[in-house]
Amino acid sequence: MAEPGRSGSEPVELTERPEEEQPPRGRLLASVSGFFAEEGARAVVVAMVSTIVFFGVAIALVVSSPNWPKLKSQFFSAEDFSASFPDVLRGFWLNIELFFWAMLVIPVMAMLVAVMRSLRGPAFFPFRLLAVVFTDLFRGIPLYLLIVLLGFGLPALDLGGLPNGVKFWGIAALALSYSAYTAEIYRSGIDAVPESQRSSARALGLTQWQALRFAILPQAVRNVVPALMNTVVSLQKDVALISVLGIRDAVREAEIYTSRTFNYTSYVVATLLFLLISVPLTRFVDWFTGRDRSMRSQSQV
């Protein structure tokens, strides 16, 4: 029989010992070349040819369309590209800055909420309640609405002591919404740690807080690293929503350019800039998740 409180399942072994195994860089290269490794050289040739044919046909179809010249001049014009690039890039730095601040606030606020929610005992009821209200509220409001409400509403209230800047409230909206999501991710990680681990920690005489801090949270965070990293990718894009507040970020700059010239190339510039960050980030997350998974299956003795 298992111990009470555990549904009979053995604790999942989550440990990993990366150091001795292979330096990460070696693994990255290995996994890229591993893409083709098994099939050998012929497979590489087949893959290349079919890729060229596939994309060649796709591009040919687009370019041969009767509307292509018009589309090209409106969305892919070289002059407009270089004309709008400096402004959009400057705006993009603002996106990066907002992303940076949000990234500083979110992990901390989310952890706070998750910990509050997993405290036990009647004395902590108000904390749990607060955490539940927080997550329900900020997960329930569409991010766009939250940005508008906070960004236009709160500065208008002119509350003493609080910053009035639209930028501040934009970041606050992002941080609140993403903290609510991230707190739930943390919480799922905490719940995945077997109950017996908590018992073991308490049995050592650790306080509830110490048990969380030293025994539960390190395992919980490790459980959810891939999910957290996906959230980062999505945050990086959602930062663009702040442009609704009139902040001159990349999207706003693109919009301004378009309204002046009736040419949409500036939006393509903004798109490319976002892709420049999010694609490598996504690749990294995929690689990391794969590595994480293979390491866990190795450690399952």
């Binding site: 111990e3 989550l14 440990t15 017996s196 073991s200 049995a203 650790l206 025994a215």
Partner: peptide, 27 residues
């Protein structure tokens, strides 16, 4: 009071030494 459970409840993210010293150091 010391207690040992049926299934191994060492903390998987810590070395044996850290597992063993966690109680004395923190508690």
């Amino acid at each position: 009071i010391g207690i040992v459970f049926q299934s191994f409840n060492l903390f998987p993210h810590m070395s044996v030494l850290d597992n063993v010293t966690l109680g004395p150091r923190r508690a």
